[in-house]
Design a protein around this nucleic acid. Structure first.
Length: 171
DNA sequence: GCCAACGTTGGC
DNA sequence: GCCAACGTTGGC
């Protein structure tokens, strides 16, 4: 008993994959861009909101991610991805030439995090906001709450299932 | 382009 | 610690 045995943070996390939604303006980075990226994978850079960052830090490899197009036509869920690598420091926060540079970030305290995401699917049609709002199972989705501006947010298993169901059906 | 909603900053 | 000013997000 040397007290160094690692404490697993609860079995529930090891058993249950979690689900998330990330937003992106397709003009900046779209689901098609992710599909075309090397190894279908990108690091999710530039999150500069603490609540969103904290969600990034909860992600684990294998978690499912809905990919949402904001400021688009139509705006809506455009595809799905998967967490490929858990959170690590966002290098763009320390890069003076990056639009995401944060003068308050330091190597000792980088402040911001990224995860790596791998493309899983591009939906044949974007599931529009209007469509999402019609689905009773999604009534409480964070995405649909008035005034919501989070760019990274959790999705319940039921919501995940419902959205993928819409993606698989004709709409 | 407009504007509501929200987060952050900074003066006090 | 309060809160007004400001900047940003994102739907329309």
């Amino acid at each position: 008993m040397n007290g160094t045995a690692p404490r697993r943070g609860g079995k529930e996390r090891a058993l249950a994959r979690q689900h998330w939604l990330v937003k992106s303006e397709p003009e900046a980075f779209s689901i098609e861009d992710l599909e075309r990226a090397p190894a279908h994978t990108t690091s999710w850079e530039g999150v500069r909101n603490y609540q969103a960052r904290n969600f990034l830090r909860e992600m684990e490899p294998g978690d499912g991610v809905l990919f949402y197009h904001s400021n688009a036509s139509p705006t809506g869920v455009a595809g799905a991805a998967e967490v490929a690598r858990a959170a690590y420091p966002d290098p763009t926060a320390l890069d003076r030439r990056s639009p995401y540079f944060d003068p308050k970030a330091t190597r000792a305290d980088p402040r911001w995090s990224v995860v790596d995401l791998t493309w899983r699917a591009t939906f044949r049609e974007v599931i529009s906001l209007d469509r999402l709002r019609q689905v009773p199972a999604l009534a409480r989705m964070i995405l649909l709450r008035k005034g919501n501006r989070l760019s990274v947010m959790p999705v319940t298993p039921a919501e995940w299932k419902a959205v993928l169901g819409l993606a698989g059906s004709k709409g």
